[in-house]
């Protein structure tokens, strides 16, 4: 397996936020994780990204133990709900940011960023500052910035949470397209049931710090804990 998370535990004070986290993920797959606010999703992602050290457990990426590796050496990019574009850089420079950190030659940066702008349907927006972009465009630039560095794993923490319904739908489609184009392996955290089903090759459900990953989507739908059954009953009752 490409990503293996084994017995990860994380507490803050007396509160155990992540309890015995165990799952694995194949390369070029997306695991969407559904869970309510405060269930430990963000802590789980930050632990995998190296931003929060686990109390115990092990994380293996492509067979290598990265539990103690610093975040800048992991090749795992964490994307927040907020786009977090650097306000002093334009769209082009925001996308090029990670490439410049790696000191990639200027010509290659230009080529990669222009290709990314095309893939993100952001042609003509390169010189715009973050304040001149719409919410959806900003989130796309944020994606571009993360993907352009060619990370081994992408961690998405409710990335479309702040977008309106229409933009959200377009972004979901764009994300699916990008994952295929750039062979992205990712963990996609959301509290939206439909989004979780749409985005992931695999689905997990997190509750009170415990993650349950389902064999297939049918298992997920049939589990009364996930809330899918009650959704079906609700919509069925309206007919």
């Amino acid at each position: 397996m490409f990503l293996e998370v084994q017995h990860i535990v994380k507490s803050f004070g007396d509160e155990k936020v992540v309890k015995d986290l165990n799952f694995s993920l194949s390369a070029k797959h997306t695991l969407s994780i559904l869970g309510k606010s405060g269930c430990g999703k963000t802590t789980m992602l930050k632990t995998i990204g190296g931003l929060v050290p686990p109390d115990s457990g092990k994380i293996l990426l492509n067979g290598e133990d990265i539990t103690e590796t610093k975040p800048e050496k992991r090749s795992i990019v964490y994307l927040y709900q907020e786009d977090l574009l650097f306000p002093h850089l334009n769209a082009f420079e925001n996308i090029a940011f990670g490439l410049r950190l790696k000191k990639i030659p200027e010509g290659l940066i230009k080529e990669k960023v222009e290709h990314m702008l095309h893939s993100l349907e952001l042609e003509g927006q390169a010189d715009k500052m973050p304040t001149q972009l719409s919410g959806g465009q900003r989130q796309r630039v944020s994606f571009g910035r993360a993907i352009s560095t060619n990370p081994s794993l992408l961690l998405l923490d409710e990335p479309f949470g702040s977008l309106d319904t229409g933009t959200r739908k377009r972004m979901q489609e764009l994300f699916k397209k990008l994952t295929e184009e750039f062979d992205i392996t990712s963990l996609f955290v959301t509290h939206d049931l439909k989004e979780a089903v749409l985005m992931g090759n695999q689905i997990g459900f997190m509750q009170d710090g415990v993650l349950k990953v389902y064999e297939d989507k049918k298992d997920f739908i049939q589990d009364p804990q996930t809330g899918v059954q009650s959704e079906i009953e609700f919509w069925g009752g309206l007919l």
Binding site: E72, K73, I76, L84, G98, L101
Partner: peptide, 28 residues
Amino acid sequence: EKVKSYEDLVATLGGNKWQTYTKVLLPL
């Protein structure tokens, strides 16, 4: 918290402490 998130983001993008200061924190 937002500045903290910027710092974390730079780290996951591969930036070290010096790069975090020179490319993000000081310009901000």
